[in-house]
């Protein structure tokens, strides 16, 4: 490690918590304005990649990470798909939430379900992009 590395490491570590917070904001803001699960997933992952570059303690490494990330990515996508089918089960169209038998007003049901879908997408994207990063750096699979 050279002395100039310290700049990269310090900046990268400083950025990580803010990026995670920003990711959470983007995720929850998804159904009101610009944002959503995909963007949030990318931001979460960029935080993790920065952490890896900065060699901080939340670095991900080693063999098991690969298959855990697979499970993460897959379950996020399945969460999205299954939530969509709830619409059909409740008697509406695919991805239609207004008919779900929940004790809230329609807007609240929409907000809850869309947030669940966005979380699913965020998990899937984050897991898969992490896997891509691990594979490129030769630490995946």
């Amino acid at each position: 490690m050279t002395r100039s590395d310290i700049i990269v490491r310090t900046i990268a570590r400083l950025m990580v918590p803010f990026l995670l917070l920003f990711g959470a904001y983007i995720l929850l803001h998804g159904h009101l304005g610009a944002g959503g699960g995909f963007q949030a997933g990318i931001i979460f992952t960029s935080a993790l990649i920065l952490a890896a570059i900065g060699r901080s303690r939340i670095e991900f490494r080693s063999q098991p990470a690969g298959s855990k990330l697979w499970i993460l990515g897959v379950s996020g996508a399945v969460l999205f798909g299954v939530t969509g089918f709830l619409g059909i089960v409740s008697g509406g169209f695919y991805l239609q939430y207004s008919l779900l038998p929940l004790p809230f007003p329609v807007e609240t049901i929409h907000a809850i379900m869309i947030t669940i879908v966005e979380i699913g997408i965020g998990i899937a994207v984050s897991g898969m992009i992490c896997l891509v990063f691990l594979t490129i750096t030769g630490r995946g699979e």
Binding site: W70, V78, V82, I88
Partner: peptide, 16 residues
């Protein structure tokens, strides 16, 4: 929608 989503969701489940 079933014709489209059945292969897609199965594709997601397959790696698991």
């Amino acid at each position: 929608i079933l014709v489209v989503m059945i292969p897609v969701i199965t594709a997601y489940i397959t790696p698991l």
